[in-house]
Simulated assay, not measured.
Amino acid sequence: MTKTNSPHSSRRDNSPNSPAKLSGKVAVVTGGGNGIGREIARLLAAQGAKVAIGDRDGEAARNSAQALAGTLLGVDLDVTSARSYAAFLDTVEAKFGAIDILVNNAGVMWVGSFDEESEAAAEQQIAVNLLGVIRGVKLVAPGMVARGSGHIITVASASSILTTPGEASYSASKHGVLGYLKAVREELHRSPVQISVIMPAVVDTALAAGTGTGASKLLAPETIAAAVLRTIERPRFEVSIPGYLGPVVRAVNILPAALRDGLMRRLVPNQVRQVDRGARADYESQFGDHA
């Protein structure tokens, strides 16, 4: 479903990007039916981009495309399936043209003790969070390189650089994403294609329901979306949210092990102890039973 709304129906947008920067650009947002992805799609469309929302919940993708102001398309997308991803991209390119911006946002998270996690939960996190990103990059980046322009932005997590008890497989997937993108960025260093990774602390979405925030405050999806737009305007590779997080982690990591571990235990939430299982019941039903 493609829908174009009058600009008079859009909410006022206070992002730092000029409309001319994104006007007419084709942007793809995976996992865009709800939460962070939906807000990213909203801001991109408000800046004049033609935005394709992909989500495994195709109805949510189409509903968001219909509800938001601008030129948007909602399409079913399972990032764990090469066939689904290729069909999604074919649909987008047939409607809008070549893709200028890919936002890898789709993600899932199971929370609890590592030895209670089911095989299905571990496999799904790796399949969506890591292999989904790899698949998107492989399918989209070559065309961008050939055209001489493009930007791939991945919404990862602070778990890419932190150790978070209770999120072992999730952390593994996000560490993997950062490592993968570092390697791809180096391979493309002679290309004008930009690679960026956004690493937020805990965000107020269904994925993080019932989890602790540690020393950082709970972030709003709008904050992450605004960071994505700023990164398009002024490309950077690693973007941590809050901004002090990356420098603090780098500083702490040079300390002696005992001091480093003690500080991290004070700053980073232990989700094994803090998780509210009841608050996560609906979200985690997608993973099936525990091991």
Score class of each variant (00 low, 15 high):
R11A: 14
V272Y: 08
M144H: 12
S240P: 01
I36C: 14
A120G: 03
P200Y: 11
R38G: 09
R185F: 02
S15M: 04
P192H: 10
M109K: 06
K3R: 13
A46E: 08
A87W: 00
E222N: 04
F114L: 11
G32Y: 01
A168K: 09
A172C: 07
A279P: 11
R273I: 03
A46R: 10
E93Q: 12
N63S: 15
R11K: 12
V248F: 05
D76W: 02
G262I: 07
Q125S: 06
Q66F: 15
P165K: 12
S160C: 09
S240D: 00
V145R: 03
V228T: 07
S157H: 04
S285E: 07
R147G: 08
K95N: 12
R234L: 04
Y244A: 15
I126S: 02
E117L: 07
N105P: 13
V249H: 13
E222R: 05
G97S: 12
R185E: 00
E186C: 10
A87Y: 01
G210K: 11
A46L: 09
V197E: 00
L162Y: 09
V26H: 01
A69D: 06
A27G: 12
R11C: 13
A121W: 05
S160M: 04
S113T: 03
G210M: 04
P247D: 07
P165Q: 14
I126C: 02
G97Y: 05
A227F: 04
V26M: 02
L102K: 05
P19M: 12
H151M: 11
G24K: 11
S9H: 03
S81R: 07
T211E: 05
A106E: 00
F237C: 08
G33V: 05
G288A: 03
T231L: 10
P247H: 12
G288F: 06
A61M: 14
A183H: 13
Q274C: 11
S191T: 15
R266Q: 10
E238R: 13
G166S: 09
A69K: 07
H151I: 08
G24F: 10
A20K: 06
A291Y: 09
I241L: 15
E222H: 03
E238Y: 11
D13E: 04
G48P: 01
G24P: 15
I195F: 03
E59F: 02
T205E: 00
L22M: 10
G97V: 05
A291D: 06
V75T: 12
I134Y: 14
I101W: 08
F88H: 09
R185Q: 02
D276A: 06
L162M: 15
L43K: 13
P192T: 08
I153E: 00
R230L: 13
L130P: 02
G148E: 01
P16M: 09
L162H: 11
D276Q: 06
A94D: 08
G243Q: 01
G31I: 04
G243H: 08
R234C: 08
F287A: 02
T91C: 08
L207H: 09
R56K: 12
L68Y: 06
N5C: 14
D13N: 14
T30P: 06
N17C: 15
S113G: 08
R147Q: 02
N14A: 14
G32W: 01
T154K: 00
M199S: 11
S10W: 05
K21D: 07
S216T: 12
A281N: 02
S113E: 10
G74P: 10
V79M: 05
D57L: 02
I195P: 00
G24C: 13
A46F: 08
L255H: 07
